[in-house]
């Protein structure tokens, strides 16, 4: 099969598929069928080897805080909140927020686990202390 006829170039694209999984309460990321790299955010092609055999897999959801910043939002607008980068145990990195803990206690190296926040218009992944 030539590259131009590959399944990834037809049907719903990776953003849509990811959102559909989240809507069902599942966090899925992609794993390259050629080199094994775990890829996030969703893409058509592997960022490691360029292959187009990305498969949807269910990560453990466990991860480690890689970097953190507290955005100093004004109190009347809801107050400060944290923004983190999390390295999932399987290797991919996501942006996120750590809930259920004081902002000051969100530290680099902290163990966290993913959960899906469905409170808004579209579901998205947040983290809580593991």
């Amino acid at each position: 099969m030539s590259a131009t006829q590959a399944p990834v170039f037809s049907g719903p694209g990776p953003d849509r598929v990811y959102q559909e999984y989240l809507g069902k309460g599942e966090l899925r990321i992609q794993r390259c069928g050629d080199c094994g790299k775990q890829v996030f955010y969703p893409r058509l092609a592997c960022t490691g080897c360029g292959g187009i055999k990305l498969e949807w897999v269910q990560p453990s959801g466990r991860g480690t805080v890689h970097a953190v910043s507290i955005v100093n939002r004004q109190t009347e607008k809801g107050g400060p909140y944290n923004v983190v980068l999390v390295d999932l145990a399987e290797g991919a990195r996501m942006m996120g927020r750590v809930d259920g803990v004081d902002n000051a206690d969100v530290k680099i190296g902290m163990a966290v686990k993913a959960k899906i926040d469905s409170s808004g218009k579209a579901p998205f992944v947040v983290f809580e202390p593991a």
């Binding site: 890689h66 970097a67 953190v68 910043s69 955005v71 909140y81 923004v83 983190v84 980068l85 942006m95 996120g96 927020r97 680099i108 926040d117 808004g120 579209a122 998205f124």
Partner: peptide, 18 residues
Amino acid sequence: APYNPIFPATSYALAASR
């Protein structure tokens, strides 16, 4: 976008934290 980082300051802040 769901995490509301200030563009671009929060991105640089994350690098600084690291």
